[in-house]
Design a protein around this nucleic acid. Structure first.
Length: 853
DNA sequence: AGCACGCCGACT
DNA sequence: GTCGGCGTGCTC
């Protein structure tokens, strides 16, 4: 039997299956999805089995055997292997990178090169046989046996060459070992005797001096169930050695048993029952249930205003799904995966839920993942990567807050979880439910424009604007399920727009408008709480010398440094570079340094100044860096230990505190004027989301939005809670400028340490791309017509023109219809690489980029 | 990516 | 004459 293996080597050239002979004893165990260690080019690497064949594609002489099967149960399944292939094709990443993204980090073991002294019976001592190696090194190897090559070289850096020579001459022996980064946690557990009668008899016959052993045995006989050794010792008062002695006599058995690290151990979740549904909820639930029943893949857009009870629909749909013997996945944005959220799912489904997110430790994540793989749970809830939960028969995939850009992974593999979910649903005949109060324009297009386009097409008019929508890599169309009302019948809070230009004209130079100041004062008097949003961290956004105009920039990136007052440093938010705040201008020596722009740190300071005695909790990347900090801050706010929760967009999602009656947006313009075609969409979503935090319970809420652009349609529409109105305007703009959802984008970014070399490479790359597109007959304007079309934009400097000492240029592809964008970019990259002078140019691909910046 | 093979300068 | 520099090419 031949296994086709994709090895874990991050290179384009090796990203394909290699054939290996399967040893006979492994035949019964090896499957598509198995993880194996294989010899590859003179070393051992790990890889995944992606298929089998009767005959190898290379001559049998070159075939090597699989080294080792690394897991008793395959970590991947055939559907995930295929999904990884689809990701590689769609997003231009490697197959192996996509597969690596699907398994927990604990399994990403690398093969270690181990070194030891070769057995050399002829030589009197090793120093004689190994010239060049120091006595100290030889003694060390003798003492510690096979050691990692890297460890050896770290300890004896001067002898690297001698070691490599010794390895070549066979004086030192080398072996390879693939080791996981973590093993299953095992716990010593005492089992009751198999032969109870014999044990009782033995206990009766114990001599008097062994009273402790006798009593301990009787205790265990009474317990009569497996008990962890440590706990048994604690509860019985006998030491562990007493039980070990009994085990030595064969009266009890002690075994190491696998144990899960349960991140929610000891936490009690209040069980909840299904709530009665409103008419709209019931209608949505019915449609989802029907789709589940049919067993055919389907996508649904559940569009419900904040507080409309989307979660209850999810919960009941999941119940329906698991009752029919299938499993369900729930995706939520990472920052929304709060204890409040987990509680709702644990409360309904108890121990049937696995929770997967980045705040868990390596071991906890591994254990939650194993619960899924081993079929011990039927529901998985987690961030983006939970879309890869290794369930066997998926019935339902829910994507909550589907418009969130965090569903797109920003590092390779740059996949979009929404599209990966739709593809996976296709494999399983599952239903995807996209939930949001403010759906992305892509999902709106899939639910509202695509069906209209299909209808027009069947009516013979294939050329309308709706015919040109391209919602995503996998999402084509969806059924629309609206929830227009809040479940408790509460009104949405009124939104007040404050024109900050008028504040300035009236002589108010602070960052708080009179309206916001008054509202905040009122809340302080009444003992109610406030959420303040400012989408920018740090103290000030740029630092400028008033004498000469010098601005502090990052030496590695072409970007302004942000001043962080508490730590007294200027920091680059892109590469992390930090330097001390200057006392005087580094360019002209003038002491007149001014800090412009406002971040959360500065707002906090101003709050203390403007409202003496106010209690503020600031929540941003800087205050939530440590494990559990996020939850700690939120629960402190929940206990009324602060009057104001101030933060970046992480305060906008999913929070539900009954005493919050005021929400303030300090500067809506922060996100509105970014050079990104989604800036208006983001701003509308952010204001709508954060507004939804106010007045969710008995007390009515209100929202104050401060802006210098009070007439912008995104802000006006947010004020009216008017999603449809916003989308109408936004679609008009997108169509005019040819942006999603009327086309798709793929961004190729080239980088190089030297600008002239980069510029030249970028030109040649763009020319190669244009050539490839033209010969495929795709290069034609997007405006008008239908069918596949493609336009190139650039090459031009990237919005971040330099990052980590590399200049960056980009080429954007806009396209619609059936176009293999990732393939075209790869083709052009290969053309460029074939050219000798290309040098150190790196090319990265981002298909369906969510952030153009 | 690694690692071996292979062809040119500075040392035992 | 050998060691070792890193350019090119392959890994079942």
């Amino acid at each position: 039997m031949i296994a086709r293996v994709v090895v874990d080597v991050a290179a384009r050239q090796t990203d394909r299956p290699f054939d290996y002979r399967v040893p006979e004893e492994a035949e019964a165990w090896i499957e598509v999805g198995s993880r194996v260690a294989v010899p590859f080019g003179g070393r051992t690497v790990q890889g995944f089995v992606v298929g089998f064949a009767q005959e190898a594609e290379v001559e049998p002489g070159r075939l090597k055997p699989i080294g080792e099967l690394l897991d008793p149960t395959p970590p991947l399944r055939p559907d995930l292997i295929e999904l990884a292939r689809w990701m590689a094709d769609t997003y231009g990443c490697t197959w192996t990178a996509a597969m690596q993204a699907m398994i927990p980090a604990a399994l990403k073991g690398k093969a270690e090169r181990m070194v030891s002294l070769a057995q050399n019976p002829g030589a009197a001592d090793h120093a004689e046989a190994a010239p060049g190696l120091s006595d100290a090194l030889i003694a060390w190897l003798k003492r510690y046996g096979p050691v990692k090559l890297t460890t050896l070289l770290e300890r004896f850096p001067d002898e690297a060459q001698a070691v490599s020579g010794a390895l070549r001459r066979g004086v030192l022996a080398e072996s390879a070992q693939v080791r996981d980064r973590l093993s299953v946690k095992k716990i010593l557990t005492v089992f009751p005797p198999e032969d109870r009668a014999a044990a009782e008899a033995a206990a009766a016959a114990f001599p008097a001096r062994l009273t402790k052993q006798r009593q301990a045995l009787l205790h265990m006989l009474e317990r009569n169930e497996p008990v962890p050794l440590r706990r048994l010792a604690e509860e019985s008062g006998f030491s562990e050695s007493i039980f070990r002695a009994l085990a030595d006599k064969g009266l009890l058995s002690i075994e190491a048993v696998e144990e899960d690290r349960d991140p929610y151990a000891g936490r009690r979740f209040t069980p909840t029952r299904p709530l009665p549904l409103t008419d709209a909820q019931a209608a949505a639930y019915r449609r989802i249930a029907e789709a589940l029943e049919s067993g055919k893949p389907a996508a649904m857009l559940l569009q419900g205003v904040t507080g409309s009870g989307k979660t209850e629909v999810y919960l009941q749909a999941i119940e329906r799904c698991i009752a029919s013997g299938r499993q369900a996945i729930v995706l939520v944005p990472e920052i929304a995966l709060t204890p409040q959220m987990v509680e709702r799912f644990k409360g309904r489904f108890g121990s049937d839920v696995a929770v997967m997110h980045s705040r868990l430790s390596l071991g906890e994540r591994y254990d939650e993942w194993r619960k899924v793989r081993d079929g011990r749970v039927r529901v998985a809830i987690g961030a983006r990567s939970a879309v890869f939960a290794p369930f066997e028969r998926i019935g339902l995939i829910i994507i909550d807050e589907e418009h969130e850009s965090s569903y797109k992974q920003e590092e390779s593999p740059k996949y979009h979880a929404r599209d990966a979910a739709v593809h996976r649903a296709g494999q399983h005949g599952a239903v995807v439910v996209l939930g949001s109060a403010t759906p992305s324009l892509e999902s709106f297009a899939a639910a509202r424009l695509a069906p209209a386009a299909a209808a027009a097409e069947s009516g013979g008019q294939a050329d309308g604007p709706a015919a040109r929508v391209c919602p995503g890599a996998a999402l084509r169309s969806a059924e629309w399920l609206p929830l227009p009302e809040r479940a408790l019948g509460l009104p949405l809070p009124p939104v007040d727009i404050v024109d900050m230009r008028e504040e300035l004209a009236a002589g108010n130079r602070t960052m708080f408008s009179r309206r916001l100041r008054e509202a905040l004062t009122q809340r302080l008097e009444r003992g109610e709480q406030t959420v303040l949003l400012l989408n920018r961290r740090g103290y000030s956004t740029f630092v400028m010398c008033r004498s000469c105009g010098y601005t502090a920039g990052c030496p590695h990136c072409e970007i302004a440094l942000t001043y962080h007052q508490r730590s007294g440093v200027l920091r680059c938010h892109y590469c992390g570079h930090a330097e001390r705040q200057p006392e005087e201008c580094p360019a002209c020596g003038s002491p007149h340094i001014r800090y412009f722009g406002t971040g959360t740190e500065r707002v906090e300071e101003e709050l203390y100044r403007a409202f003496p005695g106010i209690r503020v909790i600031r929540m941003d990347v800087d205050t939530t860096g440590t494990k559990g900090a996020h939850e700690k801050l939120l629960s402190a706010f929940g206990r009324r230990e602060a009057d104001v929760l101030l933060g970046t967009q992480m305060v906008a999602k999913g929070l539900d505190f009954p005493l919050v009656t005021l929400v303030g947006v300090i500067a809506a313009d922060t996100s509105l004027h970014l050079p990104d075609f989604r800036a208006a969409e983001r701003t509308f979503q952010l204001i709508t989301q954060v507004a939804g935090r106010a007045g969710r319970h008995d007390l009515p809420g209100e929202v104050v939005v401060q802006t210098y652009s009070p007439d912008h349609y995104a802000i006006r529409a947010a004020q009216r809670h008017d999603y449809d109105g916003f989308v109408r305007e936004e679609l008009r703009a997108r169509r005019l400028l040819s942006y999603p959802p009327f086309c798709r984008l793929a961004l190729a970014t080239l980088s190089h340490p030297e600008l002239p070399k980069l510029a030249e490479a970028a030109e040649r790359f763009a020319a190669a791309l244009r050539g490839a597109a033209a010969s495929a007959g795709l290069l034609k304007p997007l405006a008008g017509g239908s069918g596949a079309a493609l336009e190139l934009v650039g090459p031009a400097a990237s919005p971040i023109p330099r990052l980590k000492d590399r200049y960056r240029w980009q080429v954007m592809i806009k396209y619609r219809g059936i176009v293999d964008a990732a393939g075209l970019i790869r083709q052009a990259a290969e053309t460029l690489a074939g050219d000798r002078s290309a040098g150190d140019v790196q090319i990265s691909v981002d298909v369906d980029p969510q952030v153009i910046l």
